[in-house]
Design a binder for these strands. Structure first.
Lengths: 194, 194
DNA sequence: TGCTTTTGTAAGTACTTACTTACATTTTAT
DNA sequence: ATAAAATGTAAGTAAGTACTTACAAAAGCA
């Protein structure tokens, strides 16, 4: 079943782990090769350069299609239910891409541009989807007439802040992430009640 | 009036600018010295090492006392008024410390620990202050019985997300920061209404 | 003016790092 | 078994970088 990872994959995974922790400039090709359990020459034989290795990592492991699919297929038009699903999905996606996002955030002097392009797609798209969602809810008379764009930004940024914060210090408090999502959705549902 | 900046200050300011943009590892002492308009040796004569220079930068320009002072002296116990003031002050502080925060966020292989200590003080403190505030409001019967800690985290993280997002791409949309603060405070005030 | 402090220039050291080359060894496929 | 492909070892190159040393120029102060 679980066939051994290929040399290329081992290198990509090691690169993601190390660069996410130490930054692009702070991680050497020798370290990456050692962590992957291969020699440094093998790294260059496979990817040619440190930059191409990182680009390959992003192309292989960065995906963002779930949100659009969710908005097209799984909405119930009940505020509480939908926001809960959106919030949970948001954190699931972000968490899965956590390391790649950390890499983009930290930057680096010779860090390839592809990295930033990949990382900046999410928020723009989500804001549009959420704004449309709140607009429609208002047209349906299900929520009070509050600016849909502001509402979308508030919800999005609240979850981005929660995510960034948990990223840094996981043992921040005794409130678990899921409790926070549930309760904050409640808060929004109250605010939007017609 | 505006007496010329000392050599040490010129170096500190140049270091903050460059390292915030390029990261610690990605910025050379030669660059910093050139940006400050002095020679590289002068940098080492003043600070001894690249690390000490950064530590000096944090000690000189990182301050966080305003929030505590605000909570002790300027609260009116009207939700809308207070949250507006808190939100605005939060962004003012974060914005002033924007570059230092970016430095801490990006990290670096030899980046001194002091940097992280300085940067992690804000949020913990603010959460406590806000949680106490909402607890007291509830005791005064001015808001509905919603978990004060969750409310505090929601408000804090919403503003953190807004700040981080504006940090990355300033021309994000046509909603200005101040409009966002006002409207999001409205949203919270609605949610908390008894 | 003379003395001290600060700064610049020039050169260099010691170390790291991305990347290369040449050759021997192992693994895989047929 | 044998050829081909993938990997390891060893050594090295070229460039960058934090930091040092020695000496001369300049600026401030007595």
């Amino acid at each position: 079943m679980n066939q051994a990872a290929s040399t290329g994959d081992k290198l990509i995974l090691a690169a993601i782990d190390l660069i996410a922790e130490q930054g692009y400039d702070g991680t050497t090709t020798k370290e990456i090769a050692a962590a992957a359990g291969v020699s440094e020459v093998t790294l260059f034989r496979h990817f040619g350069s440190k930059q191409s290795l990182l680009v390959a990592a992003f192309e292989r492991y960065h995906y963002a299609g779930e949100m659009t699919k969710l908005f097209n297929e799984r909405l119930t038009w009940d505020v509480r239910t939908d926001l809960l699903l959106i919030g949970r999905t948001y954190h699931a996606i972000m968490n899965r891409n956590r390391k790649l996002l950390a890499i983009a955030q930290k930057g680096g002097s010779r860090l390839p541009e592809e990295v930033h392009k990949h990382a900046s797609q999410h928020p723009v798209q989500l804001k549009k989807l959420l704004t449309n969602y709140f607009s429609t809810l208002h047209e349906q008379g299900k929520i009070a007439p509050i600016d849909p764009e502001i509402t979308a930004m508030s919800f999005m940024w609240m979850n981005l802040g929660a995510f960034s914060s948990n990223l840094l210090e996981s043992s921040n408090s005794d409130v678990t992430l899921d409790t926070f999502i549930e309760q904050s959705v409640d808060l929004f549902a109250r605010a939007l009640a017609p």
